[in-house]
């Protein structure tokens, strides 16, 4: 059974998934940040692979990517850093990234190396469903990697059902049609999450975009299995001199 599936079997509510950028704030911060997140009680980690042109991300996460690239982060370096990381990290880890760097690395080679780590799943926001179904999905499947689709408040019910049927692991509910790091109208978000909940989807649902503190996390968790925090955590690591301490403080504030 996949680590993600196992997590959702053991825990139905208040699942906290935190995003961090590989190679940020320092090149070698990747595993220490993940360890600090796990030790602070995070249930799942979304690890971003930096890209020069991250369309779906807002300025804060892009700046962390730019920093990580300047630090020398590459996919090959990331896999070197992750080799053996399962000796200390047991929570599910999902790699998030954009198609271009992965195509250069070689899509199948990427899936093979990710599965070797082992990584549990992938989020590739610019991989559309047609290309997923015809070309890339079967490769991920062959290596046992979950693939998580995004849905937004603008996604039709029919399309939500379809993306739910293609997703494995969970469904990523973007809280409003926007890039990461924007404040959201939580009432509209609630109605949308209620709709998702009423649809009784196959996959568990995690809410992302606009979750930044204890209040927004709890609100998201009322209608979903949990939530994903990205921008707010990256901000907390800006100029940090104590990755471990600041990570713990950030997560403790949310879970308190």
């Amino acid at each position: 059974m996949s680590r993600i599936k196992e997590l959702f079997q053991q825990k139905k509510n208040n699942i906290l998934n935190v995003y961090c950028t590989a190679g940020y704030p320092q090149l070698n911060s990747t595993v220490p940040v993940m360890k600090a997140l796990q030790d602070s009680g995070v249930d799942m980690i979304e690890l971003g692979m930096p890209y020069s042109d991250p369309l779906a991300d807002g300025p804060v996460i892009q700046a962390s990517s730019t920093q990580a690239l300047a630090n020398g982060m590459t996919i090959a370096t990331l896999f070197e850093q992750l080799r053996g990381f399962r000796q200390q990290i047991y929570v599910p880890v999902i790699l998030m990234g954009y198609m271009n760097p992965i195509l250069q690395y070689g899509f199948e080679r990427f899936c093979q190396d990710a599965a070797d780590m082992p990584i549990d799943g992938l989020i590739l926001p610019d991989l559309p469903e047609y290309e997923f179904e015809t070309e890339y999905g079967p490769i991920m499947q062959r290596y046992g990697l979950n693939f998580i689709f995004l849905v937004t408040p603008e996604t039709s019910e029919e399309r939500i059902r379809r993306l739910d049927s293609l997703s494995t692991g969970f469904l990523y509910a973007v809280s409003s049609s926007s890039t990461t790091g924007k404040d959201k109208d939580m009432n509209a978000v609630n109605n949308y999450l209620q709709k998702l909940q009423d649809m009784k989807l196959n996959n568990p649902v995690l809410v992302g975009f606009g979750i930044k503190d204890k209040a927004t996390f709890q609100q998201a968790c009322e209608h979903a299995n949990g939530a994903i925090i990205g921008t707010a955590f990256i901000k907390a690591l800006e100029n940090t001199l104590d990755v471990e301490g600041d990570t713990k403080k950030f997560i403790t504030d949310i879970k308190s």
Binding site: P128, Y130, L150, T152, E154, T155, L163
Partner: peptide, 10 residues
């Protein structure tokens, strides 16, 4: 093709 995030789909 159309390699776009879901947010742009509509």
């Amino acid at each position: 093709g159309a390699f776009i995030p879901e947010m742009l789909h509509p």
